[in-house]
Simulated scan of single mutants.
Amino acid sequence: MSAGAQAQTFGPVITVNGTAITGFELDQREKFIRALRLPGDAATLAREALIEDRLKNQAAAAAGLVAGPDEIEQGLAEFASRANLTTEEFIRALADEGVAPETFRDFVRSGLLWRTLVQQRFGPRARVSPAEVERALALAGSQSGARVRLAEIIIPAPPEQRIEAEGFIEDLRERLRSEADFTAAVERFSAAPSRNNNGLRDWISLSDLPGPLAQTILTLAPGEVSPVVPLGGGALALFQVRGFQETVLQAQPTIAADIATLPLSADPETAAALRGQIAREIDVCDDLYGLARTLPEGALQREVYAVEDIPRNIAVAISDLDNQESTEILGATGPIHVMLCARTTALTEDVEGTIEQQLVNRRLASYAENFLEELRAAATIQ
C-alpha cells in the first residue's frame, strides 16, 4: 500500500468533538454490519453508528467509567450466544467476512459503557411508583381482567439464518415510529397469516398470552412496539399494542392446554389441498384423527401442555383462539396447522416484581434515547 493510500485509510475521515474516526474504522464497521446482514445502506449505517459510539464513549469517559477485561469478555460471549456460538466461533465467522476482532471488541465495549452510564445517570429517575405498578397489575387481570389488541410482524429465522434474522428485525424495530410504519412493514416482511389483516390479531385476554410476553405487553402504551420476541420453531416477532380493554369479570389465565398440531406440506399445492380438506371436514380436534389416517404415521401430534411448557410460537398462535378453533404457524419445513382443543384455567399469580422491573427498563431506554439526542445536538461533527 502506498504512503498516500495508507494515510487515507488510517487518517481521520470524521471527527466528533475533535476525536477522529478513521477510514479503516468505517470500512471495518461496514463489514461488521454486512456480516450481521442488517438491512439498509452499510456505509450510512456505519457512519451513524460510529458517531454514536464516539458520543457514548466520550460521555462515559467524562463520568470516569471504564469497562474491565472480564466485563468485556462477558459482553463478547453474550453477543455471540445470540447466534448460538462461542466468542471464538463468532470471531472466526466475522474473520471470514473481513472483520477484525478489535472491531467486535470496540463495538461491545461501547455498548457496555453506555449501559453503565445510563444506569448510573438515570437509574434513580427511572424508579416507578407503587401506583404505576398497581395500574399494570390491574391490567394484568388481578382484579378486573383485561384484553389487548395487537398487531404482529413474524419473521422466519431458521437456525442457519438466525443471526441475519436477528440483526434484520432489531434494525426494523428501530425504524417503526408509527402505526403506519408498522402496517407497511407487515405488508413487506411478515410471514404470518395475519399479514392479510395488516398484522392485526383479534382481542386477546392478557391471561392467555405466555407469561413473559404478557408482562412485556403490560409495560407498553398503545402504539409502542415490543422488543424482539423469539417464538421458537424458527421465527421472531414484533408486536405493536393497538389498545387495551378492561372487563368486569376476573381474568382466569390458562394453566394447561390440549393442543393438536398437523404439519402441512412445504409444497404449496399440497398444503392448499390439505387446508381445503381441513376446512371441509374438521370441526373439532377428534376429527383430525380421521384425516391423519391418510398422512404419514406420527404426523398428527396431540398433547396436553402445562402453560409454561407450551412452545412459544404455539402459545402466541393460540392466544386469541377459543376451544376447537385453529390457526397456522411457521415450521422449520413448512406451515403447521394448530388446533386448540381445550384450556384449563386458574387465577393469576402475583407478577409485581417482574412488571416493576420491565417498567423501569422501558423508562431507562427512553432516557437513554433522549440523552443521546442531546449529546448529538451539542456535538461538533465534521
Rank of each mutant, 00 (worst) to 15 (best):
F122L: 12
R127M: 09
Q58F: 03
P124L: 09
K56Y: 07
A67S: 08
P124G: 11
L50K: 07
A93Y: 10
L117M: 01
Q119S: 13
A61R: 14
A131R: 07
Q119V: 04
A42P: 15
D41M: 04
S81K: 14
Q58G: 11
R105W: 00
R121L: 11
G123M: 09
G68Y: 04
E102F: 14
R127P: 00
L112D: 02
T103V: 05
P124V: 08
V128P: 13
D70V: 10
K56P: 06
E88P: 09
A126Y: 02
G68D: 12
R115D: 14
R127N: 09
A43V: 15
T116Y: 06
R54M: 15
F104R: 00
P130K: 09
A131N: 05
A100S: 13
L50M: 08
R115A: 07
T103D: 11
E73R: 15
L76A: 03
V128M: 07
Q119T: 08
V118R: 08
F107Q: 05
K56L: 12
R105F: 00
F79Q: 14
T44A: 15
E78R: 15
R109S: 01
E102Y: 03
L85Y: 13
A131H: 07
D70Q: 12
E89I: 11
D41K: 08
E102G: 12
L55Q: 02
S129R: 12
A83L: 15
V99K: 00
Q74V: 09
D70C: 09
F90D: 04
A59K: 10
A42M: 06
G68L: 02
A100W: 08
E48I: 11
R47F: 06
E89Q: 14
T86N: 08
R115F: 10
G75M: 09
V108F: 06
F107K: 01
R82C: 04
W114R: 10
R105Q: 05
R109D: 00
P39W: 04
P69W: 07
R54E: 15
P39R: 01
Q74G: 14
A93D: 11
L112I: 13
R109W: 02
A77D: 11
L117P: 03
L112Q: 03
E88I: 03
R82I: 11
R92D: 13
V118Y: 00
A63N: 12
G40E: 09
F107D: 05
L94H: 07
G111I: 01
A59P: 07
L117Q: 01
L55H: 03
Q58S: 06
L38N: 06
D106F: 01
E88L: 09
D106E: 04
S81L: 09
A43L: 15
R54Y: 01
P39C: 14
A59L: 11
F104V: 00
P101H: 06
S129P: 01
R92P: 03
Q120Y: 06
A83F: 05
F104Y: 10
L113F: 04
F107G: 02
L94W: 05
